[in-house]
Amino acid sequence: MSTYRKYWAFARVAASEAANQRAELYGRALFFAVILGVFAALWRAVAEAGMPLRAEQEKLVWYLAATEWILLSTPQRHMQIQDEVRRGDVAYQLPRPVSYPRAALAQCLGALLVRAPLLGVVAFVSAFAFTGRMPALQSLLWLVPFGMLASAILAELYVALGLLSFWLTDATPLYWVTGKLLFILGGLMLPLELYPRWLQRVALCTPFPSLLAGPGGFLINGAEQAAPLLALRLLFWACFSFGLVELLFWRATRSLQVSGG
């Protein structure tokens, strides 16, 4: 029980920090609203040119609202970990009676709990303002837990990216690649059904469609049928990312001890 209390304390501190960083929070909210505005205009133009999808333009705006909500709510801790590794600060965190990567995950979850509700409201209000319509309430209710879980898995993947800086010094290029993989293979802006078949197959071998297109798809195709399979996929990727982070950290601390810190 005391183990959980330790991590709960990390989460609480991170949540209060996130709540205090108002400029960043409002900046994200503004960026979110702008992106939705740009894409509402884009989908209107696409509809004029002949929509290549069965889905209506309004549903595509709501889809983007969902995927962007997941992405923008996700705390990206990789830079902080990278800085701690570069400066050597990570060395004095190792003797603490807490696991460094689990504390990082707890901090991400704390920040997520602050960001997700605010950005959720921004997503809802903006998407409604730009489309004048609302998707089925049931789909929205399904989206919330799945989106939060997807965000948590994504945050853990960013922790893994940060840990890679033990070997790479600068993991920023990998972060860019991950961002673009999310963009394409995750179906951030375009539903995957628009992509060529081979790319859709490639995407399904990665965690990205389960993190973004999966929950976002609830608002286009409904949630009841897709939810059980997506839950299984998310569970698998949660275990995978957690295992990956633990493995990376174990390898990193081994090499730290070998080289003398």
Partner: peptide, 27 residues
């Protein structure tokens, strides 16, 4: 860093490649 940023930009273009490949022209 330079190569990855160039790749990053090229990847962004996949969006336009897919979309304009379907609709041809936008306004």
């Amino acid at each position: 860093s330079m190569t990855f940023m160039a790749l990053n930009n090229a990847t962004f273009f996949v969006f336009w490649w897919v979309l304009l490949g379907r609709v041809g022209t936008l306004r």
